[in-house]
């Protein structure tokens, strides 16, 4: 079971959180200006990164705050936790032990 550093509460077990998918997908400000394809891209398509990416978590059984994390989708390693509005931490530029060669 993973452990997450809630930016409000501290280190807690994964079972207190719910996963919210890829982070920083802004809702288009003018939906009507988008073609069907562009709108569907916003709705359904996710980058599905193999490696480090940014994602959303909710501290559901805790402070009920949404926050962001950088996690490696292969090794499940977290490298950063940050709040809405915080400056974005950099994605690590390194390979991961255990990742497919």
């Amino acid at each position: 079971m993973l452990q997450l550093q809630c930016p409000f509460c501290g280190l807690r077990d994964e079972s207190e959180f719910s996963f919210g998918g890829e982070a920083h997908i802004a809702r288009p400000l003018e939906p009507d200006a988008l073609s069907d394809e562009e709108w569907a891209d916003y709705l359904f398509n996710r980058s599905n990164v193999k490696g480090f990416h940014r994602e959303m978590w909710l501290h559901a059984a805790g402070c009920r705050q949404w926050f962001y994390a950088i996690r490696n989708t292969v090794s499940y390693e977290f490298t950063a936790f940050y709040r809405v509005g915080d400056p974005l931490p950099d994605l690590p530029n390194r390979s991961v032990p255990g990742a497919a060669k």
Binding site: S18, A23, R27, M56, W66, V84
Partner: peptide, 13 residues
């Protein structure tokens, strides 16, 4: 409740 919170907190803080 989760739905309202995710929009309020992350999209329209």
């Amino acid at each position: 409740m989760n739905w309202l919170e995710v929009w309020l907190q992350t999209e329209w803080p």
